[in-house]
Amino acid sequence: MIRFATKSGGHTPGQQQRTGPGQEALAGLALVALPVALLLTLTLWPTVTMVVSTFLVDGQVNASRYVYFFSDAYSLANLRYTMEQGLVSALSALAISFGIALYLRFSAGRIATMIHALSLFPLFVPSIIISYALVRFLGPNGLFQLLLEQVGFTHYRTPYLTPVGPFLAFVWEALPLPVLVLSAGLTQVSDHAVEAARDLGAGPFRILWEVLLPQVRRSLLIAFALIFLGIIGAYTVPYMLGPAAPEMMGVFMQRTLGNLHDADAAQVQAVVLMVISSVVGGFYIATMLKSQGGER
């Protein structure tokens, strides 16, 4: 660790000569050198070589592996399912957490504190635990079904091993982040602004739409990007709760590499997912930069 830091710190004197900053800037560069070096060697370099290798078939440059992926109905179904699951789960999580954040903004007291704590609770539960808990609770003849049968409802169909299973787990897991971000955003809206709007005759929906939403629009976009990226790369939840087919990309990639030992196909799947993630990631960064610019 220490040797690594000194090694990458070695580049900094050159920087100093060119820009001539003080000792403070030098320390800053030294601090940032290690993470940048790690990023370059452990993430960027393997990624570039991997992407290049997907275009090399028997020493020839061609895109046949991608042609196969995008003409294979099964692969496309998995990709579409992953996107659908990501969109539906992320939007649902956002809608629910926006509701919770609104409630927390306008109420106080013991119940509000409890709801706040409950909504943050998933932050501390690993996904393998929530998966097992959902199997036991929502699974066939699980607690939920038994409770429903007690009140005479006998047509329960378990979401276990259907797309609804991972959907429930994703939404539950994703709640804390947007609740934190959105309630922080909503506290910035002053009571005066809301009261002023009300005095001018605005109804609750108009207040929501024209006063509250514009304040948290960026927070919503950022939260969406983060949740969506987390879901489309998920493995444990869809593996344990989802159907055999279609597979989410994480499960599909693992099976292609681990069971079929087809590293080339798995890499192509990874690159496709990575491109989609980069688009969403780029959108996230753009939103972040814009919000920083707005503050200045």
Binding site: Y74, A77, Y81, E84, Q85, V88, T162, P163, F167, P243, A244, A245, P246, E247, R255, N259, L260, H261
Partner: peptide, 20 residues
């Protein structure tokens, strides 16, 4: 074994009627 496992996913398990 590989042909069996992958073939099963593509031919048997494919169950695209349920919505996400």
């Amino acid at each position: 074994s590989k042909a069996k496992n992958d073939g099963w996913y593509k031919n048997v398990a494919t169950n695209l009627t349920q919505g996400g």
